[in-house]
């Protein structure tokens, strides 16, 4: 039944001052890239892609709006509701590399866990880097200011990796501008690419149309799309719908989301 099922917050891990991982006491089979609708009773309900989807279910959340502020006030043992998992996750392939930029590292981390592929996690500076101690060999880190790992954009590190080794697919989640750049890089290196989109959602299961990106529903047709699908979606990297259904430039959309 697609209704929120209540569960307790099992554990909260502070990743950095503005980002926490909430482990939820629920039993759910989730593929990397699929999302949950998280309900805080009396507040609202929002989609979150899982950052842990194996033995434990966890979401990694950045404090940036009213909903996440409420979540940051909650403690271990508090009651939330979840429904899902929804949407299409990433497609498992061999010889893969995954790139997570900023909070986009959340789904990418769960993917690296499950698929066992190579990974790149990038942020502006070391204090924003997520999951620094989570991975051993397979993941390389990048920071724009060079405070940790590769100095520069994670996309530059990706290009370096693609020029060194033949990969069959690149998985990516992060700011939409970055994902657009990654698609271009993949085109240049003739590698398949799958990215995860974010749009305002209501139902999460393909009925209400709130998350439409051109003729695709991010909740049901996505949230993971491949480069071929994205080539027919002119709103990708350009436009998003706010709560009223008004389509606005992406910068305005993300400003509203915060």
């Amino acid at each position: 039944m697609d209704q929120p099922k209540t569960c307790r917050i099992k554990r909260i891990v502070e990743e950095n001052p503005l980002t926490r991982t909430y482990f939820l006491d629920c039993n759910m089979k989730i593929s990397p890239g699929q999302f949950l609708m998280l309900w805080i009773p009396g507040v609202d309900e929002k989609p979150f892609v899982c950052s842990y989807s194996g033995k434990e279910t966890g979401i990694t959340v950045e404090k940036k709006g009213k909903f996440t502020e409420k979540l940051f006030m909650m403690k271990k043992g508090d009651l939330v509701g979840i429904r899902g998992p929804y949407g299409n996750g990433f497609t498992k392939k061999k010889n893969a590399i995954a790139l997570g930029g900023g909070l986009g590292a959340a789904p990418i981390a769960s993917l690296i866990d499950e698929f066992g592929c190579d990974g790149i996690i990038g942020a502006h500076t070391k204090s924003n880097l997520l999951f620094l101690s989570r991975f051993k060999k397979k993941v390389q880190y990048s920071t724009s200011d060079g405070s940790y790992g590769f100095k520069g954009r994670p996309t530059a590190l990706l290009e370096k990796k693609l020029s060194e080794k033949k990969y069959d697919v690149v998985y990516c989640c992060g700011p939409e501008g970055m994902m657009k750049a990654v698609i271009e890089i993949c085109r240049k290196y003739k590698v398949e690419c799958e990215v995860s989109l974010e749009r305002y959602m209501r139902c999460g299961f393909g009925v209400c149309g709130a998350c439409a990106c051109n003729d695709r529903l991010v909740c049901k047709d996505g949230p993971v799309f491949n480069s071929r699908q994205l080539s027919g979606m002119s709103d990708f990297g350009n436009k998003g719908m706010i709560k009223s259904g008004k389509k606005v430039p992406l910068s305005e959309y993300f400003a509203w989301r915060e």
Partner: peptide, 14 residues
């Protein structure tokens, strides 16, 4: 322009 209601606003029932 109207925002509509907050979530949850579309759920399954029997």
């Amino acid at each position: 322009e109207r925002l509509g209601n907050k979530n949850p606003c579309v759920l399954e029932v029997a």
